[in-house]
Design a protein around this nucleic acid. Structure first.
Lengths: 220, 220
DNA sequence: ACACGGACTGTACGGTGTAAGGTAACGACC
DNA sequence: GGTCGTTACCTTACACCGTACAGTCCGTGT
């Protein structure tokens, strides 16, 4: 017994693989994920993984679903605006918790119903607020377009933002030619001094207010 | 003379490479772009390309910049709202013209000032509308988050949307369990019947109106 | 005790990006 | 016109990739 070689020799299973894969991607980025490397991490040959996933793509789908699954259950309290804000805050937190995974959330159309729970929740909140099904769907798409775009931009850096990684050779607004790009120069100080948390929330409120107004006027 | 081997033996140059690369990506997707394949397309060995680009990544940056460059000059006529709408319409058209390149537009922080011309233009329009530099920057980020998110979602398919590619095994709202996902079922008919052109514009107007109102109230 | 079946390994193939060095054609100069 | 240096391109090679296919080992049921 216990030739378990340390203990990393525990039997493989889907969840263990996905967990290790998420950790690996969080550390090395998606480019850094390879079947052999992941196998090494689990003390297993690369091909062993193919007993649990038909392809690397399927593994990546599972990674995305696992991360989306980290959005907890919605709170039932508060106005519909507050409840929606909470959902989208939670959504954006995924981006901060897993910046290398999050871009894939939008890129892979999720297929398992489980991962679509947040969609159902948001639609439900909107319907409860009095939106028609069509309005609810449209509002959902508007809100999530904004939220996804914002969260993604935050990850890779907004336009004009100095690159966060060490690579210096990047572009810097503060050194750009003021003759050719006066507006960019003008806003340069505000580029660095920016609280994305409150800015995100402001945009969300703006859209929510607009949607509420549109829904009101329609109902008259 | 004219052992030009058909004529494809014309001298290489950066623009010719980028043009071929964009065509290749448009056809085969980003995954389908490899140095060898691109070389074949240009009747040249893969390594020849490295005389014009230090790496494949640099090539991809050039691809993105070329595509962004397809946004024409802004029209000078109309209200600031109309002019902004025109800019973002043009932005979204990039996604439709180059669906496989567009996702990279947000993923690579563009470094060449040339590719940032649209940013300068949008900031200028906002400043001309009376926004402070800070408001202009914030409005720009809100608008472009939405526009990027929407255009991207359109490319990969919005949540719930039936997959456009032939692969049938995907998810379909219309067959989902109505007990577990009543809201999704409810909106299913509206998912397929959706004019993204007008929906995009509606969202844009909503945000523009909100920004204008916020700017007004601030100025009081 | 033995056979079976599932979990895992070994090997191999065709592809990838790109480092290093070779080669051939061209323009400039004496 | 001959020489030379530079540029443009090719050849080879390496390490790595996803994964098809076949083999091996081990726990379990009988």
């Amino acid at each position: 017994m216990s030739n378990r070689t340390k203990q990393s020799r525990a039997r493989l299973d889907r969840d263990r693989i996905v967990e290790a894969a998420v950790a690996l991607v969080d550390r090395d980025g998606i480019e850094g994920l390879s079947m052999r490397k992941l196998g090494r991490e689990l003390a297993v040959e690369a091909m062993a993984l193919y007993h649990y996933f038909p392809s690397k793509d399927a593994l990546i789908d599972a990674i995305v679903e696992a991360v989306v699954g980290e959005m907890g259950a919605p709170s039932e309290a508060g106005s519909w605006e507050e409840r929606l804000r909470e959902r989208f805050r939670s959504y954006r937190q995924l981006a901060q918790a897993h910046p290398h995974v999050f871009p894939l959330v939008g890129k892979r159309t999720v297929k398992s119903p489980e991962a679509l729970a947040p969609v159902e929740q948001m639609l439900d909140i909107l319907r409860g607020a009095g939106f028609t099904p069509e309005q609810a769907l449209q509002s959902f798409r508007t809100l999530s377009s904004y939220a996804y775009g914002y969260a993604l931009a935050e990850i890779v850096g907004f336009a004009l933002e100095p690159s966060t990684d060490g690579t210096a050779a990047r572009f810097d607004v503060r050194t750009v030619d003021p003759k050719r790009f006066p507006r960019m120069r003008e806003v340069a100080p505000h580029v660095v001094a920016c609280d994305h948390d409150t800015e995100f929330e402001l945009g969300l409120d703006l859209i929510l207010a607009g949607l509420a107004a549109a829904s009101e006027s329609r109902r008259t």
